[in-house]
Design a protein around this nucleic acid. Sequence first.
DNA 1: TCTCGCCGAGTCAACGTTGTCTCAACGTTG
DNA 2: CAACGTTGAGACAACGTTGACTCGGCGAGA
Lengths: 352, 352
Amino acid sequence: MTQGEAGLRSTRSRPTMREVAALAGVAIKTVSRVFNGVPTVDPAIVARVREAADKLGYRPNLTASSLRRGDGRTATIGMLVEDAANPFSAALTRTVENVARERGVLVLVGSLDENPARERELAQALIDRRVDGLVIVPAGRDQSYLISEQRSGTRMVFVDREAGLLDADAVVSDNRQGAVTAVNHLLGAGHRRIAYLGDRASIPTAAQRFDGYRHALEVAHVECDDRIIRHVGSSEEAAIAATEQVMSLPDPPTALFTSQNLVTIGALRALRALGLQDTVAQVGFDDFPLADILNPGVSVIAQDIEQVGKTAAEMLFRRLDGDESPARTITVPTRLIERGSGEIPAKGPRHD
Amino acid sequence: MTQGEAGLRSTRSRPTMREVAALAGVAIKTVSRVFNGVPTVDPAIVARVREAADKLGYRPNLTASSLRRGDGRTATIGMLVEDAANPFSAALTRTVENVARERGVLVLVGSLDENPARERELAQALIDRRVDGLVIVPAGRDQSYLISEQRSGTRMVFVDREAGLLDADAVVSDNRQGAVTAVNHLLGAGHRRIAYLGDRASIPTAAQRFDGYRHALEVAHVECDDRIIRHVGSSEEAAIAATEQVMSLPDPPTALFTSQNLVTIGALRALRALGLQDTVAQVGFDDFPLADILNPGVSVIAQDIEQVGKTAAEMLFRRLDGDESPARTITVPTRLIERGSGEIPAKGPRHD
DNA sequence: TCTCGCCGAGTCAACGTTGTCTCAACGTTG
DNA sequence: CAACGTTGAGACAACGTTGACTCGGCGAGA
């Protein structure tokens, strides 16, 4: 490899304030003042410095700056979600990014895949980079490992689920009430045999939704039958299998409440495969794209993801602006979207 | 506010190596050695340092470390996508994150919303934070503003579209060939009147897909009729309107090639509204969730997003590992997925 | 005319870490 | 036993920037 060629494309190290200062014939500090917009600099000198900086292609080093400056802010926050590729996480990330952008703050993202060990690793990695704050959709149930970081001044807001063993802000959807609404809606259409298909009960949001399901049935004096209750995890395949099983019972349900996105989709695939999509009612928790274009449209309890994300981000920035009030949890309401599948009436003889 | 209360929750500033060293009774440099895994440290001292660090809740400051260390690496890369919330960008982000994670590298994301000014601002913001490299889905057509950064050693890979006025690596899908395949597939089902609905022609990928459309028709000696060619932009509403218009022509198309995600969805909504979903054939560019569950299923040309993202990330890291070979563009093939809508035969008298 | 205060710019040290150098202690070898 | 290499750890400076302080010059008021 020729020296010349290497020289051409090689790393001519990035110019620093020192070089800009030398070219402009001023002190380094003056360059610093110019780039920080300090008003007590002679306009002629400002122009000279700017010109020198442009000529050299100078860009300030925020890394060095944040190390030196008093507040130590990096203008960067960390965001830990379940999976950057899933629609819920993606929408959440985008709303947080929007709020951050207004303040010149960038977002570092990490996917946890429901893995508590990964949550810890990535949270540490973010802290090692001295992010100003964290927005976390926790994978584990114990965030006590963050106590010392919290005490060291790292602000954090939890989303979708509250933090465990840690006193911190959180923004959550009203899972329980959403489930109650869903089940009441099905009860209102005359259904008395309503199956529950949802994520593992160990996941807090799933537990809350299941709780709402049970509560609504209880209030309506409808028996809760364990044979049509399945905590299947969050996979379409498992949901398909579970749906086939409950539908092949001697006394199958006339309606389904599917409490998680992939479970909803799995169930509706299974109903279609069985030709039951116009017979068995279904309400899902979480909206999804094209739910309205299916036939019938899929009725869902929709979370207000934008509201959740925006609220969380604003909360975080309030903390960063010095809000020291006690930690609190904000609950964002859900809303029922009627599209057809949830309005299929119970057929056959009424059981009441 | 009482002093005591404020004291309890207030920022006790983060411990540094100095404090760990003091507590462990060693020099700062020794703490540094321990955390960098330098092998020539007495195991007893290692233990003492680790203990002191744990007691204080010490976490290394990567910001300071990257400032001081020779290579200046921050173990962070930047990723600029169209919109973190859309499925394409989200999937891309996730695959890049996966490759980065293996190397202990974190990803900063930014959404450009097809806005070239934003692209520039965000690229600068990333560079100011001294990211090791950039993965960019460019919004503008001119990336020459990055030449000086490239020369300063910031590595960059472009995705989905090549960089303009800049010599840089890129990973793109084979848009032209994908379009050719789509149109040939429709021709194969007997269609001779095939409409094109796509994004604005000023977007390079859209232009390539349109080019493929035209080329395939030309090869088949089928006339290209401007009245059934619409560059509508990327909105469902516009696609719906355009679909309604072309279908209400005296000589409407018997098949649609929709060359962008939202256009595909808009068109299929419109066909459904007109009751034509089983009559008019449709092939879309870009797969989307639930395309298989609709009736008929939607046939698409699917991009291999994982392959694109993975290739781009690996390319970037090869560059970071010192690869100085000339910049190149890697083209990833697309594939046709037959689900029904694209296999609807042309009815009525054959025109040939 | 002298002093006071202010304005504009510079000097110096420090943020938390690591590269380079130095040095003491120890074991080996001819 | 002296010369030597090796091993383990500390001293010092520096990365690029900014906070605290300093200082010269100039206009205003006594």
